[in-house]
Design a protein around this nucleic acid. Sequence first.
DNA 1: GATGGGGCTTGCCATCGTGGCAAGGTCAAT
DNA 2: ATTGACCTTGCCACGATGGCAAGCCCCATC
Lengths: 150, 150
Amino acid sequence: MNIGRAAKISGVSPKMIRYYEQTGLIPKAARQDSGYRDYDDADVHRLRFIRRARDLGFTVEQIGELLGLWSDRSRASADVKAFALGHIDRLKKKVAEIEAMVRTLETLADHCHGDDRPDCPIIEGLAEEGGATPHLEPRQPRRFGRSGGQ
Amino acid sequence: MNIGRAAKISGVSPKMIRYYEQTGLIPKAARQDSGYRDYDDADVHRLRFIRRARDLGFTVEQIGELLGLWSDRSRASADVKAFALGHIDRLKKKVAEIEAMVRTLETLADHCHGDDRPDCPIIEGLAEEGGATPHLEPRQPRRFGRSGGQ
DNA sequence: GATGGGGCTTGCCATCGTGGCAAGGTCAAT
DNA sequence: ATTGACCTTGCCACGATGGCAAGCCCCATC
């Protein structure tokens, strides 16, 4: 089967299929007489695996490890679970980071009257001389630990 | 003041300062006789503004707009607020996406016994023939709006 | 059989924000 | 004067993806 067909039914674009091949994530595809790449159901199956892993936020490198775990009939389910749990942790950390941004922005926005006058605590919050960002109270007196950017 | 000093007190690396100059986010720096870039307090102030905006997840392009809003003495605070609110929306959307991934992964992980045997619902969830990913029940029968992952 | 259109091939460029390295000039202290 | 830290420019890299171009292949329709 052609790459376009494999792409359509796996949900991975032809461009990405070639990229995955090039970077060694998947083995070099078989070739038809024409030189076209040739895929069978097993290839498509693997591509769909990759697609779903991408949708869950795994990097291509991590997917390489997942593919290893997938094909390793002797590995323990605990190994897979540990890998998944680690990824969940990373995702949650990212969520926490973004939520901290949201809280800061909401605090700033709450203090901005949003009318046609120019003075604006949002811009001032970004421009001010002080430390991290806001020394304004959050909308609810809920305290949050702005620990450290990077 | 040299770029290194400006970098240290603004929190923006020399590399990034040059990049911002190159892409037009900030004007071309003045030069000392030596050819070294020369920064004054106003430049550093602007850099710190940029740094804080980056920390809040704005893209460089958006920061360009923010700088415009900052220096535009006649714009309405409502304009700034609308901009901030739009950004908050984008951030929240991203949070929702990641949280959907986390939920899926947690569901999968909950069904994995995590012992030394090889069979593992996590890998199977990625590998299976079916649709999006899990047709397993989430840990608690808490319903969540799986709106759009793509 | 020829022609056209769509799919395939490779290769290169761009994104976005950041880091690294290299070859050379500058500055300040010893 | 030498040394070491800093600065300059320019290029390459990442990660994952998209786009474009030149050229070949395949199939259907005339």
